[in-house]
């Protein structure tokens, strides 16, 4: 921005080039104003791990345990995770650069994709080979990186669709309304409470397609909560959302934890993560390269190198240990 307006003294006026009003602010200030902090109070959960923070460290009370998960696309190993445990009643952030395999791992854990190898269990129950809809019924719900709204359903209808265990969803009961109308009323009340909380109540009768990008993210999160989940997987909930709404979304994520849910979310942006995450798992090249409490992870040399990109000229494979410094493959 400042490169196009090198002179900070350009006067404000109709002739002023675009962005001139920001030209006087130095770069640090801009970064500070864009960094969003949640407004809700955060109680960071500590002592989640049994041992010192390291990739694959055992947790005191894991909700999800995964072993030897691999998934290749062609010759490219997109995910290669030896062991990872997600702590219960905490917010875990899964971070990593583009192409690190975060979303692929998400798809595998939620049953939307099948791994080449691997075992994982949710609440001690094995989920390998279980279809996506069943793992959602067990209390593990996910959202999508590219928000999936049900365009030609109204906001309220989309919400009601989310509720699980509906009697009227059986084809036989569907044609006998007395069997499901009372449950339908309960579901609608629950949906309206959530819509009010997510500031979508005024939009309840609009088609979901008419919502803005940020409202869609909110609706997707609210809809997922209609399933009354125990474990919420959010795939880049803050992607493409303006800073004001990011704050709201961060608050909602904190609320999920205070309401007793476990959260695992994917995020690019390290700064976004450090305020709300209790635990951070860092992926690069399909592997977990570091994990630990946010402030510790941010000091981790491997993460700074691999993730924050201070050594842009170095191949990321060197940092993850897949290649040596001369570029020879090690594993």
């Amino acid at each position: 921005m400042s490169s196009s307006t090198p002179d900070p003294t350009v006067p404000d006026g109709p002739d002023a080039p675009e962005g001139a009003e920001l030209a006087g602010i130095d770069d640090d200030t801009i970064v500070d104003t864009l960094e969003v902090e949640p407004t809700h109070e955060i109680h960071h959960t500590t002592h989640l791990a049994k041992d010192d923070a390291a990739p694959g460290v055992a947790k005191v009370d894991p909700i999800l345990v995964a072993d030897h998960i691999t998934r290749s696309f062609g010759g490219n190993k997109a995910v290669d995770v030896d062991h990872v445990e997600i702590p219960r009643h905490a917010i875990t952030a899964l971070i990593g650069p583009n192409g690190a395999g975060k979303t692929t791992l998400f798809n595998l854990l939620s049953g939307f994709d099948k791994p080449d190898t691997g075992e994982w269990s949710f609440n001690g129950r094995s989920l390998a080979g279980i279809p996506a809809f069943k793992s959602a019924r067990l209390g593990q719900v996910r959202t999508f990186q590219l928000t999936k709204v049900l365009a030609r359903l109204t906001v309220l209808e989309s919400m009601k669709l989310g509720a699980n265990g509906q009697r009227g969803e059986s084809i036989w009961a569907a044609v006998v309304p007395p069997l499901w109308t009372s449950q339908e009323r309960e579901i609608e009340e629950r949906a309206i409470t959530l819509l009010k909380k997510f500031k979508l109540y005024e939009k309840r009768d609009d088609y979901s397609a008419s919502l803005s990008g940020g409202q869609r993210k909110l609706l997707e999160m609210a809809r997922a909560l209609m399933t009354q989940p125990e474990f919420v997987l959010l795939d880049e909930p803050m992607a493409g959302v303006n800073p004001a709404l990011v704050q709201t979304l961060l608050d909602h994520v904190i609320d999920l934890k205070s309401e007793g849910m476990t959260v695992l979310f994917v995020e690019h942006d390290m700064h976004m993560v450090r305020h709300i995450a209790d635990w951070v798992v860092v992926m690069a090249e399909g592997r977990i390269v570091a994990e630990g409490p946010p402030h510790e992870v941010m000091r981790n040399a491997a993460v700074i190198d691999a993730y924050l990109g201070s050594h842009l000229d170095e191949d990321i494979g060197v940092i993850t240990g897949r290649y040596d410094e001369e570029g020879n493959r090690l594993s």
Partner: peptide
Amino acid sequence: LLMRSPWGRVLKGIREDEDAVRSLGK
């Protein structure tokens, strides 16, 4: 009768985006 029921709602959801409906446990 079918399309005004929760069954019909799931069906319309599938028309819009079946992965979203799947992620909600249907």
